[in-house]
Design a protein around this nucleic acid. Structure first.
Lengths: 223, 223
DNA sequence: ACAAAAGTGTTGGTGCTACACCCATGA
DNA sequence: TCATGGGTGTAGCACCAACACTTTTGT
């Protein structure tokens, strides 16, 4: 939570909750703090806002530094500014959340100071970061149900089973394959290709339909 | 947009989009700027964040100063921090939105520097405030459809027609009274009383059911 | 042939829209 | 008794969950 300090002792920072989908469910990278307060504790990746830099750009720097990923889904979550959320100083954090593909995120880049944790089983984090992650999780799950963000966890083409597994992992409940197909099929484009190799009927490969009709909202184009 | 300046020339402020419902639809109070930049232009009410004050508290101060209203629905909208949104300085604004009852809001308190405008017909505002209001409007309309915020425009008891008129004004389309009743009736409590005086069958008076089952979300309890 | 997953069909329920209709009051 | 909104009933349609069933591959 290194960041600029203001005249009045107010510190401003950007933090980012980064979600990836591994074999064992949703995972989040955290960084170890190397100074007080909360020295040694795990915390959300974050940093200062540079003077000529947008808030989202700052979040993208976090993302790149932590995962090596440059471009993915990124959205502002909330601005946390409770006077008591950090001891001995006033910190206001603008928090973003991001979705990355696990193959893109350099999971191997784990080290002493960066580690990936299961999203629903975190240690006690620095500051109010447990609350922040819980909020990000609820937003992810809510948004999953009415938008197309699941695609951000997948490559350019994917099978319906892969897409369904994303939903099942995030919502942590099984979905009926037949009904799931009918729900999402109209917002997908059939590439014509199939994924062969498995010992069953080869599934079609789809890609996301980015046409305006099916497009996400969240486009008030600001910040 | 008077606010604290940071070491690096970054200014931090809270602004608030305040909605009231008058006879002629949704209205928003704006304040006239009395210095550069945008001297003379209308802008959202806003101000600095005091050192020992939460963000929401700062927004409540805006609200109180502009409308005289102390307690109502208030929620964070977004944090706007584009580097170019203000000329010659970097301003980061945490924006809240509020709903007030028109009878509570001291509409009479209009003066040279505070005036109420129709929400869908604003003049050209200072900074990016037109964009901010548009975003607040879309959030209000969206949230109207899945939550109970409409009650914030009404007193403790109200008829179904009054509640429906709120929806119609905000969504700016007529709603079927019969179907509207069935939609909202289960989340209301019949007070047993009726509103007499009109020259037709006296309608029941309801009040909002604040029980957990029907309660709003948005309760991640943060600031 | 068989296992496994892809993909289709069908049925019952639920909720919403449109609209017809009756009810209670003041003038 | 009439105008006005309050309030109820209902038919049609869309959507969705559940689940039976058929199809196509690799082994």
């Amino acid at each position: 939570m290194n960041a600029m300090r203001t005249d009045d002792g107010v510190t401003l920072a950007v933090s980012t909750v980064i979600f990836a989908l591994g074999e064992r469910g949703l995972r989040i990278p955290l960084v170890r703090r190397i100074r007080e307060p909360f020295d040694g504790r795990w915390a959300l990746p974050g940093g200062p806002i540079l003077v000529e830099e947008g808030l989202e750009s700052a979040a993208r720097r976090n993302l790149l530094a932590t995962t090596g990923v440059r471009s993915t889904y990124l959205e502002q979550l909330y601005c946390f500014g409770d006077p008591d959320r950090s001891p001995n100083e006033r910190v206001i954090s603008i928090v973003y959340w991001a979705l990355v593909r696990s193959d893109e995120a350099a999971l191997a880049a784990e080290n002493e100071n960066v580690r990936w944790f299961p999203a629903d089983d975190l240690p006690e984090l620095a500051f109010d970061h447990n609350v922040i992650v819980a909020y990000a999780l609820s937003r992810l799950r809510t948004k999953m149900e009415y938008s197309q963000i699941a695609h951000a966890f997948l490559g350019p083409t994917f099978t319906l089973a892969e897409l369904r597994e994303v939903y099942e992992a995030v919502l942590s409940r099984p979905l009926d394959p037949a009904n799931f197909r009918r729900q999402v099929e109209k917002s997908l484009i059939d590439t014509g290709e199939r994924l062969t190799g498995a010992r069953h009927r080869p599934p079609r490969l789809y890609r996301y339909d980015a046409s305006p009709a099916t497009k996400d909202e969240a486009s008030h184009v600001v910040s």
